[in-house]
Design a binder for these strands. Sequence first.
DNA 1: CTAACTTTTCTTACATGTACAAAAACTCTC
DNA 2: GAGAGTTTTTGTACATGTAAGAAAAGTTAG
Lengths: 225, 225
Amino acid sequence: MGGMPQPSAPRKTQGRPPRISREEIIETARRIVDEGGVDRLTMRRLATEIGSTPMALYHHVRDKEELLVLLLDDYAARTLRRPELPAHPRERVVVAATAVHEALAACPWIVEVLTADDLMSTTALWFVEQIVDGLVECGLSPDLAVHGYRAIWYYTAGEIVVRTTAARRRADDDRATYREQVFADLDPSELPRLAQVADHWAPLTAEDTYLDGLRALVNGLLAGR
Amino acid sequence: MGGMPQPSAPRKTQGRPPRISREEIIETARRIVDEGGVDRLTMRRLATEIGSTPMALYHHVRDKEELLVLLLDDYAARTLRRPELPAHPRERVVVAATAVHEALAACPWIVEVLTADDLMSTTALWFVEQIVDGLVECGLSPDLAVHGYRAIWYYTAGEIVVRTTAARRRADDDRATYREQVFADLDPSELPRLAQVADHWAPLTAEDTYLDGLRALVNGLLAGR
DNA sequence: CTAACTTTTCTTACATGTACAAAAACTCTC
DNA sequence: GAGAGTTTTTGTACATGTAAGAAAAGTTAG
């Protein structure tokens, strides 16, 4: 039953020597994704590209989802730069969250992974720290600060997931048309506000308002402090 | 009234008469999901259960994802009850959002669908209306109110997606252990706040703080009004 | 009735993730 | 060196979503 091979081997290697490594897998997977998008990344293609067989990968990686998580960590480690943080703790929270958001929004293929419980890559933890610390310095108790961070993470992850999926579907005419139809058929006596904004709905929801919402959320979390 | 190529055809039916209908598909799919969870719902099983073939389904449903969306709409139409709304518009927003959140959180299989751009089922639109209207009555312009609604939706969808996926993974020991490991290995000099809360992290993030975050967000959106 | 046309259903086929078990390639003990 | 033990790789097999096209079951025109 499955014990994962841990990187640190106390004694000299025993058993059949590996022909491929986790690093090689991640590296190759990254190349495939960079070249042809995440859809091109299949276990079979990855295996052939590496010169191995699909099932061999599964000794270095639990399943495809874990591979994607590793890929995201790798991506974060390479591109997430720590921004200069402002002195004011509230602004620190906003800047840290925005930096994470920007990095994630730039690689839209992570949607499947983004549903992770938290940002858990070592690289990302620094940002989590900044957010929690900023909230504490603004007067929240540590527990409340963690809750606040979670709220920010929900908002951030939700924004990216919803927006990315929407963009993906926008390529699909039928579904876009369907939404338009829903708004065209609105009964203004029952849903007056929606009827009122019906014709701006698409451009309105296309606008990037992440920062506004984030500021509102952070201000709300810190209200009175 | 007519937009979809479904209901009443103007002239008498032509072509081969259908043996199955969209309604029958949804009904049967719902039964399967109710009985054995969403994992039991495969196109093949659904087809056999209905007494047809997998590919016959595809004439009534674009693909499995659309089927899931239809299933969610059906679910919403049957279980989403309009709550009594408080008079104060700010509370109306909170209550409407909470109602949607509760209904969605109760059926965790929708995660794959939840990434939809918006709540677009006819049933759900009433809730969207309440939220937008409440924000407008609190002093936001219609455009800002739509942005506010979007922020609330991001937060709500994100909460459910993150939380559901987390719960799904919690069944998996290894990954839970991994997270514990990350927190145990924290360097307190680099990440002091996280180290400080490391041992409460799991219970803290298990708490349901949706309402708190929502209130913060709404208050922040309406700050100064 | 026959032929053309339309709409739905069925057959076949493929790509994918991955379970399972056997084989292979090592190291260690004797 | 022979066998035992350990780890990695490979081969085979299955369930799944769904594309493509043939077949079926009607309606209508001649």
